[in-house]
Simulated scan of single mutants.
Amino acid sequence: MTGASAVYRLTVTATAPDPRERMACIAPARSVVRTVSIGWGVTGSTLDDLVTVAGELLANAALHTGPTRLPARLLLEPDGHRVRFEVDDQAGALPRLVTGPGDGQAVTGRGLLMVDALADRWGTTPTDSGKTVWASLALPVPLDPAAVAATAHRGAVRADWTAAARMGADPIRTPTCGPALATRSRGALRFSPAVPGR
């Protein structure tokens, strides 16, 4: 999406061959999305819905794309009325909603149903290397884009520290999801606040 007033970029490096290990990367990323969103002023059920949607989109990409890096973005739309989360992946297959009754035994396959229920809009945009899957949520009280942009850096730093603390305290330590601040050179998770106008 172009024209966003505030953007927070993160890359989840989910390169483990085992899908369960790739899924371990999602919780720290959700924590980052929560921290940045709070810093922007997103609250209440919208905050909870946004974090759930972001986690589901990341989980789908990590599960179905295979070992890869997943660039993602949290964006405040220019009018301040909507927040959007996007994940890029290299898979050509489009996500699809599972419809009809399940067999009661499946442990996956319902994430997009949650995204569809919680987001006001969601979809895919083709890219040269695959696709972007995105979801957008309306904010009950519009945010001031200038105020969010002015505080975006402080929120980004707080999110980086939150993610590092979360991963450092996590008993499941995988080579692909080590502490971000201690292993930036190995690319466990990369965080970068976007500066408006760049």
Rank of each mutant, 00 (worst) to 15 (best):
G130E: 01
R96L: 11
V148W: 11
E77P: 12
G66H: 13
G111W: 10
N60C: 07
P142E: 01
T132W: 07
G104A: 13
H153E: 07
P140D: 01
G109K: 06
G123Q: 01
V107D: 14
P140C: 04
D79E: 04
E86D: 00
H153Q: 08
A62L: 15
G102M: 06
T127S: 09
P126K: 03
V83D: 00
L97K: 04
F85H: 02
A152V: 01
V115Y: 07
K131D: 11
A149S: 02
K131C: 14
T151K: 15
A152I: 06
P71A: 03
T125L: 03
L113W: 02
A152M: 02
V115S: 01
R154N: 14
G66T: 12
L76C: 09
D120H: 02
D120M: 04
L74M: 08
M114L: 08
H64Q: 08
V83W: 03
R69P: 08
A106R: 12
E77S: 07
P140T: 05
K131V: 15
V87Y: 11
L74F: 03
S136R: 11
H153I: 01
G102A: 06
R73Q: 07
L113E: 06
D79W: 03
L70G: 00
H81W: 10
A149N: 13
R154D: 14
G102W: 04
G130N: 10
V141R: 12
R69N: 05
V83S: 05
T65C: 14
G111Q: 04
V107S: 14
L139C: 00
V98P: 15
G100A: 02
G109V: 08
P126I: 05
S136M: 08
A147K: 04
T99S: 07
R84P: 15
D88I: 06
L70C: 00
D144K: 15
D89P: 15
L75A: 02
S136I: 04
A61I: 12
P67R: 08
T127L: 09
D79I: 08
R73K: 11
A150L: 14
G111P: 10
T132K: 10
G66M: 10
L113M: 03
R121P: 08
V133K: 03
R154H: 15
A146L: 11
L76E: 01
L118M: 02
D128H: 14
V107G: 13
Q105V: 11
G80Q: 11
A72G: 05
G111L: 02
L112K: 02
A106K: 04
P142G: 07
S129K: 00
V83L: 01
N60K: 10
A146I: 12
A117T: 07
R73A: 01
P145L: 14
T99Y: 05
M114P: 10
H153N: 02
L74Q: 02
V83T: 05
L76A: 05
L118A: 05
S136T: 06
A72T: 03
A91P: 15
R96N: 15
A91S: 15
G104R: 08
T108D: 12
V141G: 07
A152L: 00
D79R: 05
V115A: 05
T68P: 13
N60W: 10
A138P: 09
V87E: 02
L97T: 12
T132I: 06
D79C: 08
L143I: 10
L74D: 00
G123W: 03
L75E: 05
L139K: 09
D79M: 04
A93P: 15
V148L: 11
N60M: 10
E86G: 08
D144Y: 13
G111A: 06
L63R: 09
